[in-house]
């Protein structure tokens, strides 16, 4: 399987990268670790004539407790014991991404912006042609939920849910300048599902920032999948909380692998603040999260099972946080 020809650019600064992006507006992809983009290119999914490799851009590097450069390799983040101590849920998630070989090349930014996945999208050109393509690539209809408006491909990153639960912010740089937004805001919850993010043209995720509050929280991430490596999440449940002797000071829960974007459930966690995190409350909360999610049939496990497991995995993730906080049920 050879790649179709493209022009590869390798800027050495952010400024140069953005300049290239402007020059090739509409006809390029950024290339981070390549472990998601290049398989998709080999399958002729949404090819662009220009690739802008970000591996030589120093501004996208660096890792500390407050700032993680988007081009940090997952394997390097995984090895960082200080990070693991500060954000155990983030360490959980890192260890669950794909395989050690993918993590050796894959990056933080790449995982946050991993292309959404679907049985009808992640297929060869031949396969998709035999079905008349789909809404997300070259076609005009969705085969999962038959209609022509919205794509239901599944968000399959492991890191976003836990970082969102930790109140992480994304630092973005684009031709129009820099901005910082809550990480969850880069995903387009209201969109058509075809694009996986709402970044502006040429905009790059430069880094992820973690607030001081995140270090006061215990966190956890649990992933449902068929095999303990390789597989994308069929469901990823992240929780982060600051507990004061079992009473909730702050609590955030986010899930991935279920819908087109990762999702945080502030409206469901808000009533728990100030309350004792009892098993009963936790069960009711997990049940409510389950009722809120709408997986579709485009991954290996059936959607009703993934939904049912949302209740279990969310509950267990919060229990793990409770355990890590040293709080009792």
């Amino acid at each position: 399987m050879h790649l179709d020809p493209f022009e590869l650019h390798r800027p050495s600064s952010l400024e140069e990268a953005l300049r290239l992006a402007t020059a090739h507006a509409g006809g390029f992809d950024y290339l981070a670790g390549g472990t998601d983009l290049l398989p998709n290119y080999k399958m002729h999914l949404n090819l662009r004539p220009h690739l802008i490799a970000l591996d030589a851009v120093a501004e996208l590097r660096g890792r500390g407790l407050e700032r993680l450069g988007a081009m940090e390799r997952l394997a390097d983040l995984e090895r960082d014991t200080e990070l693991a101590r500060a954000y155990p849920g983030f360490a959980d998630a890192l260890a669950e991404v794909a395989t050690p070989l993918v993590r050796a090349s894959g990056t933080l930014g790449g995982n946050l912006l991993v292309e959404t996945r679907c049985f009808f999208f992640n297929q060869s050109h031949f396969w998709r042609e035999s079905l008349g393509y789909c809404l997300k690539a070259e076609g005009d209809r969705c085969h999962v939920v038959p209609q022509k408006e919205r794509c239901y491909a599944t968000f399959s990153g492991d890191l976003a849910p836990v970082l969102m639960a930790l109140d992480a912010e994304a630092e973005l740089a684009g031709p129009g300048g820099r901005r910082r937004v809550p990480l969850g805001a880069i995903y387009d919850a209201a969109g058509d599902g075809i694009r996986r993010h709402r970044l502006g043209p040429g905009e790059i995720v430069v880094a992820v920032h973690l607030p001081a509050a995140a270090r006061a929280r215990a966190s956890a991430y649990l992933k449902l999948r068929v095999r303990p490596s390789f597989d994308f999440p069929e469901l990823g449940a992240a929780a982060a909380a600051e507990l004061d002797g079992g009473r909730v000071r702050s609590l955030a829960v986010a899930v991935g692998g279920l819908e087109t974007y990762p999702r945080r459930f502030d409206e469901l966690t808000a009533p728990l603040v100030g309350e004792h995190l009892s098993d009963d409350r936790l069960r009711a909360f997990s049940e409510a999260v389950m009722r809120a999610v709408r997986p579709v049939h485009n991954t290996f496990l059936a959607p009703d099972y993934r939904r049912k497991m949302t209740r279990v995995y969310v509950r267990r993730a919060v229990e793990k946080v409770r355990e890590r906080s040293g709080a009792a049920a």
Partner: peptide, 16 residues
Amino acid sequence: RLMNPSLLDYKIPMPA
């Protein structure tokens, strides 16, 4: 139609 003609979606067991 075969939905999973790949080693990602055809689930060969891993060492663990």
